[in-house]
Simulated assay, not measured.
Amino acid sequence: MVVTALALGVVLSQSVPPARAEVVMETVDYEQGGQTLEGVLAYDDAISGPRPGVVIFHAWYGPREHEMNTARRLAELGYTALVADVYGKGVRAANSEEAAKLAKSFYADRELMQARALAAVETLRESSLTDPGRLFAIGYCFGGAVVLEGARAGANLLGVVSIHGSLSTPHPAMMSNFHGSVLALHGADDPVVPPEDVRAFQKELTDAGVDWVFTTYGNAVHAFTDETADTEGARYNPIAAKRAWRDMLAFFQELLERSGGTD
């Protein structure tokens, strides 16, 4: 895996602190299977030394402003955040038809999906801005499937969060490879994830002996955290979005305290 100098070896000045805190967003090139991937690293330059890290996996269009806003908000709270690139540098969907085609190719190749997930996690782990023992990963919609496949592949993380994500998998037994905790944030009326998928996912987690929480938000459909979502089956819900953000941060804090890694 090759990572640009922007990703690794970033040095924060110890002698001349910045006049004010500022979230820095840096492009990060990394590699998986010969494919260059282009992520974005976000951090607060007023904080020195390694800090907890969060990998953010994008929805089916590819990295967009929704994921970038999440990275900025997490950086403001003292995390280093990496918006991962699952598709490949320059590979982005211009419309829903292209997005569906791209996502479908990864749903059909779970091994590749897992490899892309693990590559992003290791890229963040190698950053000098990150404490390698305090890492999380989250994913939206398609990215929710990616983050769960990363867990099934045994990603070394304190926890993962699927946010209105796809839950089904062809290999549920692989979840036993994961030794962290799982949080799923789900819209009660999500037409993309049928009730049988929810039941199968919960059984998968229980059978694997994984610590898990499944939170359902009433009156919420798919993509309820995305302010641009406005269709019958995928629509922004500000109340559910606010609750999901709160629940995600509480999950992080609990696991950091449990691991003894709080500042």
Rank of each mutant, 00 (worst) to 15 (best):
S168V: 10
F57Q: 04
L135T: 00
Y236G: 02
D230C: 09
L12Q: 15
A244W: 00
N95E: 10
M1P: 00
G261S: 11
E76R: 03
S128V: 13
E98H: 14
R110Y: 06
H164Q: 02
R258I: 07
G187W: 10
E149R: 07
F106W: 01
E204H: 08
V160R: 09
P195Q: 08
P52Y: 08
I163K: 12
V121H: 04
I239L: 13
S13K: 14
A200I: 06
P132V: 10
M248F: 11
V146N: 02
M113S: 13
W60K: 14
L167Q: 04
L118M: 03
A155V: 08
R125V: 03
A100K: 14
L12G: 00
L82T: 01
L118P: 00
R134G: 05
V2Y: 15
W245R: 08
R64D: 15
V55P: 04
A145C: 10
L256V: 05
S162K: 01
A7H: 07
A120D: 02
R152Q: 07
D211L: 15
E76K: 05
T262M: 12
V11T: 10
A244F: 01
T215Y: 10
V146Y: 01
E76L: 01
S166P: 03
R20V: 13
R125W: 03
A120P: 01
L124R: 00
G209H: 00
A100N: 15
A119S: 00
G139S: 06
S13H: 15
T70K: 13
S15W: 15
A240P: 02
V213L: 13
N95S: 02
L102A: 02
Y87R: 01
R235W: 04
A145I: 06
D226K: 03
K104N: 12
V2G: 14
E67D: 11
P170N: 07
A59L: 06
A137V: 05
A46V: 10
L185W: 06
L77H: 12
K242V: 14
T27A: 11
I138Q: 13
Y43S: 02
A151Y: 00
F57S: 06
A151C: 08
V40Y: 11
A5I: 15
F224G: 04
R134W: 08
N69Y: 06
T206C: 14
A229Y: 02
V146Q: 04
G209E: 03
T216G: 13
M1N: 03
T27Q: 13
D197F: 08
S259Y: 08
V55Y: 04
P191S: 15
P172W: 00
L129N: 03
R116E: 06
T225S: 02
M248Q: 12
D207S: 01
P132W: 12
L118Q: 01
R246M: 02
G187V: 09
F57T: 01
T80R: 04
W60L: 13
T80Y: 03
E126A: 14
L124Q: 01
L129P: 01
W245K: 05
T206E: 15
T228C: 12
P194V: 10
E31G: 04
V210S: 10
F251W: 05
A117Q: 02
L41C: 15
L77A: 12
G133W: 06
L129R: 05
T130V: 03
V210P: 06
A155P: 06
W60V: 12
Q32K: 10
A100L: 14
V221W: 08
P17H: 14
A71H: 05
A108S: 11
R72D: 03
L148F: 01
R125K: 04
G218N: 13
G261C: 11
F178Y: 09
A234D: 08
